[in-house]
Computed example of a mutant assay.
Amino acid sequence: MRPSLLARPALAVFLLAGSLGLAHADDLKRSISITGEASVSAKPDVAYVSIGVENAGKVANEVLAANSKTTGDVLAALKGAGIDAKDLQTSGFTVQPQILRPQNSSLSSSDDSPSITGYTVANTVNVTLHDLPKLGDVLDKAVTAGANSIDGIQFDVSNPSALLDDARKAALADARRKAQIYADAAGLKLGKLVELSENAGPVVGAVYRARMATAAVPIESGSNTLNVTVSVRFELDE
């Protein structure tokens, strides 16, 4: 399917150096500077998701052991669902004490000192999924294995180069079209292109967050938009 290209208006600036009596000879050429923009929509083909396991208890070693076992089960479930080991990366691991702070503390009383009541252990793994139709099933398997945190699912286009090339052509055409309108309005002819610069980048698609998910997880990847903006300068002739 041919991508849809959307253009947005931008501000044009005439550089009529010929009207400046003190300008150098190289600056006397009339010109117009303007921006052109274009967007292309693309269906994502890769997803990134953080899957975590969090445990709490009174004894640190016991909580750590429980978290390690569950995290191992989750990793095994992900690999069993077809996720390659290179697409699994630990992104966070914490062991934190749970501290009880008395509401009515007194500096003169040692009984009102903060006390540790337990520990929380969390382990988070970043997952890259290249088969998007399997995403819901992968999340279901992870939760079944013991994951209790699913956060920040992001969808992306793995190879946007060809799509950006279409947007680049459309952005330059947009800039030329607008420059021609201003040239015609000024009674001048649009000359050669003398300057061009680009600013290109993707717009992040939808983000899905879930905690303690159960049953099959319905996921919609939607579409991502990649934008290109070009800044150009054309000479203007009589």
Rank of each mutant, 00 (worst) to 15 (best):
S110L: 12
H130D: 13
R168D: 08
L107D: 09
F155V: 03
N126R: 15
T120E: 04
R209S: 15
D151I: 09
I150M: 09
I116E: 02
L196Q: 15
Y119H: 14
R177H: 14
V203T: 11
S108D: 13
Y208W: 09
Y182Q: 12
Q98R: 14
S115E: 06
A147Q: 05
G191M: 04
R177F: 12
V143H: 07
A186M: 12
N148W: 10
V194R: 10
P114L: 02
S115R: 14
T214Q: 13
A206Y: 03
P97C: 05
D165T: 13
A183M: 06
I99L: 09
K134V: 03
D156H: 06
S110P: 09
S105I: 06
L132Y: 04
V143T: 15
G152M: 04
G152Q: 07
R176S: 08
T128Q: 15
A145L: 02
T124S: 07
D112P: 00
A162S: 14
A170R: 11
D184H: 10
L193F: 07
Q103E: 13
V143L: 01
A206H: 09
R101P: 00
V121H: 03
I181S: 09
G152K: 11
K141P: 00
T124H: 12
I150H: 05
K178D: 05
T117C: 00
R101N: 12
A183P: 03
R211W: 11
V121Q: 04
L100T: 01
G205K: 10
L100W: 03
P160M: 10
S109H: 12
R168L: 08
D112T: 15
L100I: 00
A171G: 03
S149E: 04
R176M: 09
P102T: 09
K134I: 02
D156R: 14
Q96I: 05
D131T: 15
D151W: 12
R168C: 06
A173E: 13
P114V: 02
R176N: 04
Q98S: 06
A122Q: 08
A170M: 09
R176A: 10
S149M: 08
L163Q: 11
L163R: 11
